[in-house]
């Protein structure tokens, strides 16, 4: 195995990685979706087990339903602890969205 082969391997991998990351960065800039800023925070506050027990596809699904008002009970989530559910409830009731409305949710 000549050293030039190893060099080509490294160079090609780097080149492909750089091209792909540029494509992804550009795509992220132009294909960004404006979403409710509270949704990401609620997703992080949920246990992130992605078990599907709540009936929504993954934890981000439940967060989306809570933030848009389609789901009122935080304890649809089978995995969440009481304190964390209380934290989410307080967060949603005190933080307004872009129009200044807060959400009323129950445990």
């Amino acid at each position: 195995m000549e050293p030039i082969t190893i060099l080509w391997a490294v160079v090609i991998t780097f080149a492909i990685a750089i091209v792909l990351s540029i494509v992804l960065a550009v795509a992220y800039r132009y294909l960004k979706v404006k979403e409710d800023p509270r949704q990401q925070t609620v997703t992080d506050m949920l246990p992130n087990a992605n078990c599907g027990a709540c009936g929504f596809p993954g934890c981000s699904g439940l967060a989306d339903a809570l933030v848009t008002g389609k789901e009122k009970k935080i304890t649809r989530c089978a995995v969440i602890k009481k304190e964390n559910a209380q934290k989410i409830k307080e967060y949603l009731e005190t933080t307004p969205d872009n129009e200044g409305n807060t959400l009323k949710v129950e445990l």
């Binding site: 492909i16 979706v33 992605n50 596809p57 989306d64």
Partner: peptide
């Protein structure tokens, strides 16, 4: 090399679906 291409393409597809087909994005989830 193929796995790099595939994982980047999946990220790209995720961005496209999130932008143009939001209901499909919610159905697919993780």
């Amino acid at each position: 090399v193929s796995i790099l291409v595939i994982s980047s393409l999946v990220q790209f597809t995720e961005l496209v679906i999130k932008k143009f087909f939001p209901s499909l994005y919610k159905t697919l989830g993780i």
